[in-house]
Design a protein around this nucleic acid. Sequence first.
DNA 1: GAGTGGTCTAGACCACTAC
DNA 2: TAGTGGTCTAGACCACTCC
Lengths: 239, 239
Amino acid sequence: MSLPKYQQLAATMRKRIKEHAYAPKSLLPDQNTLAKEFGVSRLTIKKALDGLAQEGLIYKQSGVGTVVLGIALENGEDSPAERFDGLTKLVGSAHVRSKILKFDITFPSPKVQKQLVIGPDDPVYDIRRLRLIDGEPWIIEHTYFRVKMVPNLTHKILEHSIYAYINNDLHLKFGGAYRRIGATLTTQEDIDNLGGKAGEPVLQVEQVVWLTTGQNIEYSISRNLARNRSYTVLDINQN
Amino acid sequence: MSLPKYQQLAATMRKRIKEHAYAPKSLLPDQNTLAKEFGVSRLTIKKALDGLAQEGLIYKQSGVGTVVLGIALENGEDSPAERFDGLTKLVGSAHVRSKILKFDITFPSPKVQKQLVIGPDDPVYDIRRLRLIDGEPWIIEHTYFRVKMVPNLTHKILEHSIYAYINNDLHLKFGGAYRRIGATLTTQEDIDNLGGKAGEPVLQVEQVVWLTTGQNIEYSISRNLARNRSYTVLDINQN
DNA sequence: GAGTGGTCTAGACCACTAC
DNA sequence: TAGTGGTCTAGACCACTCC
């Protein structure tokens, strides 16, 4: 337990809320009372509550108090952090397999140059993988990595988790991603690999991922049959 | 100017970053230096920087410093706050018109009961609107509001902005939303109203909106032709 | 070892809500 | 008027990175 106090407090409070030790729609004890109970300063309590507010578990209103919401609970743990762990960690590596459809090095097309903010002479890996969950075809991923930033990719790595390689072996950290979600129809490749029919709707997620250094590392397009997966977002209104 | 100091500081720093007074990829002055420059405590500086980090403008690394990223800039201001202002405010009320396709009161179906967490006897408005931007059909919205929470809806309100009515007249505040984005094909209604063809892909956004009190207020399904609009997400990796 | 950001405290004042 | 959460300070110690 070397977590900072405010995170430990947040965990405790989260547990109490989920176990309804604090009833939904009721007011939490005020921050001074909580500070005394836990033997910490009020600011530390506030910081813990700030985190819970961002998760949508509580709502704080000056002059009134802190209300227990308990809504985000029902919509299935949608921790934003998991978004950067890749499919393998999300579903569990035991269930995911990858079939490599293409593994090339090329110079980037103008579109890829623009997305990765690189010049035409900066080579990229051009990868196409079919991701299977429990043997069922699920997603086609078309990914471009800068060779300079993700060197020495191998078939072996591609068959497992690229993200694990980037995090654990290259020690690179994801800073964020920009995603565009759209609807399209099946292409011949979708039909061949995903088992779709002609004219079936397909959900497409286009994304640019960058590191904490601000450098773009990946541009990818993921496609799956609409009946297999949708994209969910939990949006908490700050202000 | 009655904004808190840390927000004013954040605004100043944001401006400096966007004007490249702090060059991208360079290190910001350290927090103690900034605290002296602005004549505030270090914690206030940190709070300002925390905000900028959440926007994806900078990245702070303990033991190193604070790097200027300047990436989110290019992807077009995607302020999450705007998500709760509705289409009218997003595009500008001068450009938006609404054609009311349906305006009823009914008892909720089992599905709507589940989404709004209400009983079968709690009446809801059943609204279908075609939203037009600059005269062009854009989105079909199928919306359910609890009558108890959004009383006295009129045709006049529906033709303008429901969200403005909820915020300004009812003084209710949105707490958050849960959205599911999926891909489907055109229905007959889409073809009739959006001008789509049969078998064309449609982007569908299903959402449940709740208030700061935790009560669900709205369940809605929005549909638009995939060629007209996609859904974008900016995702910053916390940790 | 020097410098960075992260955490934490004790105490203070403020704006807001409610009665 | 009393109580709430929001802000802010000055000062302290820590873990971490880099030289």
